[in-house]
């Protein structure tokens, strides 16, 4: 990736972080950490890799993204707003009564959300269904899904992986946001799904481990996934919960969610804008 492109995507990721925080601050609390950790991957997907038409969100030949870790909705909305799916001021309606932007994305409320998610483990199966369907229709569109590391404690994730590899769904790319924290504490302490690379590989996936905050590494891994004609690819994103805002990173070392007030937002602004 060219240096200017990388800088541009880093800037985009910062804007996504800012948008997510701004949205969350309006309600006072939300899934801050898991939204910030996945911002770089969303920047690469929505601003570099995915074939999409924001002005035509239901375009049949679009690439699809299923945010299986649905709780990162605020980051997804921030990415979509910046990409032009809807006005950025809609971000201020997050979780407000009657909003099109509930904390977990709802495809019936917001065109561009490719699948409603929120109950963990289901989105990845939905993505497998999309990949099967794309192949069946002869479409060359690609399917991306982002799962959480804690989410991989759900048995359904492994059912989905097993069938995806069995079906040789080379049009499917699974991104794992390995940010190491879940509600009860460290993922490794609660019920450790690691080692991801070995397990995904044993299930029949090509596996690429990257710095989940480096747009160039993420994008190169997606290029490699596209080039793989044998197996579906899993990209393990090594990430940090709360990434990009130092005081949030610190707090996220021990917490899954946190409150965000206007003072916090001002502090975050210094680092994000």
């Amino acid at each position: 990736m060219e240096a200017t492109k990388k800088i541009e995507l880093q800037e985009t990721a910062r804007a996504i972080r800012w948008g997510a925080l701004r949205a969350i601050s309006n309600v006072g609390s939300g899934h801050v950490g898991g939204s910030l950790s996945v911002a770089d991957a969303l920047a690469v997907l929505y601003f570099h890799q995915m074939r999409i038409r924001p002005e035509e969100p239901l375009w049949a030949e679009r690439d699809r993204l299923v945010l299986s870790k649905g709780h990162a909705g605020p980051a997804l909305y921030a990415a979509m707003a910046r990409r032009g799916y809807f006005p950025e001021d809609w971000l201020d309606t997050l979780n407000a009564p009657g909003t099109k932007l509930p904390g977990h994305g709802d495809m019936r409320l917001l065109p561009g959300i490719d699948m409603s998610t929120g109950s963990l483990g289901q989105g990845i199966s939905c993505a497998v269904g999309m990949a099967l369907a794309a192949r069946l229709t002869g479409s060359d569109s690609r399917i991306y899904t982002i799962v959480g590391d804690g989410e991989c404690q759900e048995g359904q994730v492994w059912e989905a992986l097993m069938y995806a590899a069995h079906s040789k769904l080379t049009n499917l790319t699974v991104l794992v946001d390995y940010n190491r924290m879940q509600i009860s504490g460290q993922v490794a302490d609660v019920c450790d799904p690691a080692p991801f690379a070995e397990k995904f590989s044993a299930f029949g996936f090509a596996v690429i481990e990257v710095d989940g905050h480096d747009p160039a590494e993420i994008s190169d891994a997606i290029d490699a996934a596209k080039a793989n004609t044998e197996r579906p690819t899993a990209i393990i994103l090594h990430t940090k919960k709360g990434k990009g805002v130092s005081f949030i990173e610190k707090k996220m070392a021990a917490n899954h969610s946190m409150r965000i007030d206007s003072g916090d937002l001002r502090m975050a602004k210094k680092e994000l804008r």
Partner: peptide, 28 residues
Amino acid sequence: PGRALDVGIAEQNMASIAAGMTSYGFRP
């Protein structure tokens, strides 16, 4: 061929896969 699938003994996966397939206009 290709239109009658079997996901193995994995009902949860089956339901969500079906939901995903509707994204391309299928009626599972």
